[in-house]
Amino acid sequence: MKLTIVPLTLAICRLAADEPIPGWALSRQGFFSITVTEDELSIVCPVAAVPAGVTCEQPWRAIKVLGPLDFALVGILAALAEVLARAQISIFAISTFDTDYILLKEQQLERAITVLKQAGHDLFGELTCS
């Protein structure tokens, strides 16, 4: 698969399910994702957008599967997750209409790149972040 590194440092935040979506989550600075369930409100956004006091895990980095991907394709995330799981690298996956993203802790990014390349995947992009 052809993959690219998203050049942002991300946070994964958890808010109560009944909280309104906060304005800071809508910064639209390159990458953000909001998921609401009956149990929680999860927000993935650049670290710089998260105000003090918000429950979150950081720093995370994202690897994007270059798309668009056809909905008939199967096993895209599974293939990547399997390679990373064998290397003991935990992931947080997000899918969009066009493609998939794998988020991983920033300190595991270089190792993830190495094992993904060894598994035959093509990675494009720099390790830089903002």
Rank of each mutant, 00 (worst) to 15 (best):
C129Y: 06
R61G: 02
P68I: 01
A79D: 14
F124A: 09
T37A: 07
L8M: 01
V50K: 12
A16C: 09
A52S: 12
I102G: 08
E82R: 15
C45K: 01
T114A: 13
G30Y: 00
G120H: 09
F31I: 02
I94P: 02
L103V: 05
E57D: 14
A79H: 08
L104M: 15
A112L: 06
L109S: 09
L26A: 05
L26W: 01
Q29E: 03
R86K: 13
W24Q: 05
S95T: 01
L104C: 15
C129T: 09
I63E: 00
P59H: 06
A62I: 01
T9E: 04
A81Q: 15
A25S: 13
L15N: 07
I89M: 01
C13V: 00
V83Y: 02
L104T: 05
S90P: 04
S42K: 07
D70I: 02
F97Q: 03
Q108Y: 14
I5H: 01
L109A: 10
A62F: 00
D70E: 09
A25D: 03
F92I: 00
P7T: 01
A93I: 01
D100W: 02
S33Q: 05
L3Q: 00
L66A: 08
E106W: 02
E82K: 14
Q58C: 13
W60C: 06
P20V: 06
D100R: 04
Q108F: 15
D18M: 14
D100T: 06
P46L: 08
V65H: 12
E110F: 02
I63R: 05
A72L: 08
P59A: 03
E19N: 14
I113V: 15
A87S: 07
P59V: 03
V47R: 09
D70A: 13
Q107P: 12
S27A: 11
G30C: 02
L73H: 10
I94D: 02
E40D: 12
I43D: 10
E126W: 05
C129H: 10
R61K: 09
L104D: 13
A119L: 05
T128V: 14
T96C: 08
D70K: 05
K105F: 11
R14M: 08
D39V: 00
R61L: 02
C13T: 08
T114F: 04
P46S: 10
S33L: 00
K105Y: 13
I63V: 08
V36P: 03
R14A: 12
A25M: 07
S33G: 01
V74H: 14
A79V: 00
E110K: 13
S42T: 11
L103Y: 01
A16E: 15
A72H: 13
A52F: 05
I94G: 05
Q88M: 05
A62Y: 01
E38N: 10
E40F: 10
G67C: 07
S130W: 07
E40P: 09
A11E: 04
I113A: 14
L103E: 11
V83L: 12
A78C: 14
F97W: 07
D122G: 06
D39A: 10
S90V: 06
V47Q: 13
L41I: 05
Y101T: 07
A11I: 03
R86W: 11
G75P: 11
R28N: 04
I21S: 11
A93H: 04
V83G: 12
V44I: 15
D100V: 02
Q107G: 14
Q29C: 03
Q88E: 15
A17C: 09
W60F: 14
A112G: 14
T55P: 07
Q118F: 11
T35Q: 10
